[in-house]
Amino acid sequence: MLARVASNLFWLNRYLQRVENTSRLIRVHANLLMDLPSANPAVSWLPLVSITGSDQAFNDLGTTSDETGICNFLISDLENPGSLASNLNIINANLRSTRDCMSTDLYEAIKSLCNQGRTRAIKNLSTNSRQDLLKFFELQSHVISGAMSSTISRDTGYLFLQAGGLLERADMTTRILDVHAANLLPVDDISDLVPFENLQWVSVLRSLSAFQMYMKHVRKPVNGSDALSFLLQNKQLPHAFLYCLHGLTHCIGTIESNNNNANQPNEITELGNLIEQVKHADIAVLARNKQLLHEFIDQLQVALIDISGTIASRYFPPLDLKSS
């Protein structure tokens, strides 16, 4: 498999995951806001800008921080490189070089996400059509992962697709936890929001499609500690951090065993270390102290960046002229 194409596949699925997760995030956030007292200044759309890591772009563009402004910024604004519309453009361009690795079903599913999405992601959508559009992105993403799972051979290309998707999902889980759990929960200062704390944890779970699975497997009322443990340490929930890391470990191992390259270790050290760190984290303490939680999640994100860097330097750069 060509290194350039492998890199494109890895990133293709990262962007696809990003579209799915960002869509769900905006939709769930809108639903949460309907339940919260709107007069409170701490309740706003701004956390979404931080979660998607676009504070800088947001300030540069001088977008208004009301619902319309932020939704335009996140959904349709092509000047925001992280908007859904920008993501779709990147996916569309990426598709040109990865098409020959795909089945027709998969290609047509992604093409339809881009075509329809780019037509419908316009400015100042009504709340109703905005929610419809976001739901479309989520459902079409499921069509895409269905096509990926049932029409592609488990070859090296597939493994890079998977690796990209898992890494992105792990990243998104930490972002949602970080902002929702730490920043959006000013329980220390504003006591009248306390009754809503659990409501916000429900929203975090829903943002990760994890609420029903939480109810089914944890079987306790939603609370910070259990929710945090479920989202970080569970090995069966597709959006749980550890689930993603285990999947990634498996992908890398299989890529290496396909490669038959004796010089390379068949694992990534940083990945193993990160798994140990999360497995042994003291969740109860983290759930009570938002500063500690924030610092912990920061470490996880730095580790993910390192892992992505290791994958890129091991598989994607132009190789030097060493006859193999």
């Binding site: 290194a3 492998a6 060493k322 006859s323």
Partner: peptide, 22 residues
């Protein structure tokens, strides 16, 4: 392939730059 995916070695053979080598 694009041009940057190919490389000519000193033995005057053309190689693909693959994830697992040339």
């Amino acid at each position: 392939v694009e041009g940057r995916d190919l490389v000519v070695d000193t033995n005057e053979c053309v190689y693909l730059r693959n994830v697992d080598g040339l």
